[in-house]
Simulated scan of single mutants.
Amino acid sequence: MNGLVLFAHGARDPQWAAPFQRLAELATIQRPGWQVSVAYLELMTPSLAEAVAAQVEAGASHVTVAPLFLGPGGHLCRDFPVLMDKLRARYPSVGFDTLPALGESETLLAAIAAWLVASLPG
């Protein structure tokens, strides 16, 4: 079984997580055989370690982690690799992949630009 963890920063306001939960729902619809969950770096739960543990306990043998950060700032450059190294050490029989920051996808940037331009007045 495969897992997908959508990894976001986290915030104090629980409403902040609504778009990420919706994204998880959409991914689940598009990949019905996959476990899809959302995890947070701080301020919210579950943590990345907790989300991966739940997926492994449910039978995931391969987990892809998608950091939902627009750019590769400090958290992705410093914190994220450490978290992933710990997960790989804790679960040596699980395959792990990571996706790049959202802003590194030309497809996503083009979609955002199209939405922005379509939203402009006039």
Rank of each mutant, 00 (worst) to 15 (best):
L99E: 15
M84A: 06
Q30W: 01
G10R: 03
A11F: 07
L108N: 06
R12M: 02
Q30N: 08
G95M: 13
F80D: 07
D97K: 11
P14Y: 05
A18R: 13
V94D: 10
M44V: 04
V65E: 12
T28G: 12
S119C: 02
V82T: 14
L48N: 05
V63Y: 12
S105V: 06
A118H: 06
F80P: 03
G73P: 05
G10T: 07
P72I: 01
L68M: 15
A114F: 04
V63Q: 10
A54E: 15
P19Q: 00
R12I: 02
E106W: 04
L6C: 07
L120P: 00
F80E: 05
A53K: 14
Q55K: 12
W115P: 00
F96Q: 13
P100G: 12
E42I: 07
L68P: 07
C77Y: 02
R22S: 04
T64R: 15
V38E: 06
R90E: 14
P121N: 02
L76N: 08
A24H: 01
Q21Y: 06
H75P: 00
L23S: 00
V63H: 11
L108E: 07
V38I: 05
V63P: 10
Y91C: 09
S47E: 11
P81Q: 01
P92G: 08
L4M: 07
H75L: 08
V56L: 14
L4Y: 03
W34C: 04
M44I: 05
Y91H: 15
P100F: 09
A113I: 06
F80K: 04
K86R: 15
A17S: 15
G59S: 14
A110L: 09
E104V: 01
L87C: 07
Q35P: 01
V5L: 08
F80R: 03
P19I: 00
L102C: 12
D97P: 03
A113H: 05
Q15Y: 00
A49Q: 15
R12P: 03
L102W: 09
H75R: 09
A11P: 08
W34A: 10
L108M: 09
A27P: 00
K86F: 01
L120W: 03
F69Q: 09
R22C: 00
V65W: 13
S93E: 15
S47H: 11
